[in-house]
Amino acid sequence: MTESTGRDAPPGKARRGRPPTTALNQKRILDTALALVEREGPDALTLRRLGAELGANHTAVLRHFSGKDEILLGLADRLVEEALDGFAPADDWRRTLETLARRMRAACLAHPQVALLSTTRVSRRAAEFRGADVVVGALRAAGFDERDAARYYRSLVDTALALSSYEAATAALDGRSREGDRMAWRREYLAVPPALHPHLAAVAPYLAEADDDDRFETTLGLLLDAIAARADAA
């Protein structure tokens, strides 16, 4: 029986207590990237830091993703995937769009730091394609032709994501800053002098009532009302 040498070790054998690089896959890398960003913020996401979190050399990550940007696209698609989990289109086109917009908002608020990084990106991946197909299908069911369905799809999705990203940015603030902004509607805005700002002073008591939920639902309703009106005209 010959003595075993390092050359006889099986491929991918762990060294220095690290898991073998063969244990890496895209799902595990994205899971780790998402957890890292949510814990420490967008600036923490670097290939070297991600490799350290995975217990692998950062070059091992590059066997699964071409670079950091592709990881960001994967995180963007992860949010859409979460929004679509368990979703089924309704019989009514408007209810379909309302439900999907609310689900996307919920996914962004569940992962505000990731939303800050990814809501402006076009992931061009499976979940995004599925979500796009649902939205376009609802718009076509409303009666729009292909050109208008494409236009309204872009406007609707960008508006919903912009609102969700804005809320995510607020959620990502430190507690003191967030509370200061929230209370401004109950303090500084209520104190504006009516002689200088008569219209603002008139509505100031109601500004604090327009919270995040109200603003999202109001904006979504206005946009869908406009789409419905154009659908009727078409």
Rank of each mutant, 00 (worst) to 15 (best):
P89H: 01
A90E: 14
A90I: 02
D92Y: 05
D92G: 01
R94K: 10
T96Q: 08
T99S: 13
R102Y: 08
R103K: 12
R105D: 05
A106S: 12
A107C: 09
C108T: 14
C108G: 09
L109E: 14
L109Q: 06
A110I: 05
A110E: 12
V114W: 03
A115N: 04
L117M: 15
T119N: 13
V122F: 09
S123G: 14
R124S: 03
E128Y: 12
F129P: 00
G131D: 02
V134P: 04
G137V: 03
A138Y: 13
R140P: 00
F144V: 09
D145R: 03
E146P: 01
Y153F: 15
V157M: 12
A162S: 13
Y166R: 14
E167C: 04
L173F: 10
D174A: 03
R176C: 02
R176N: 01
S177H: 02
S177Y: 00
D181M: 13
A184Y: 13
Y189K: 08
Y189F: 10
L190M: 08
V192E: 01
A195S: 12
P198M: 09
A201K: 10
A210R: 06
D214W: 11
R215P: 03
F216G: 03
T218I: 01
L220D: 14
L224Y: 12
I227A: 10
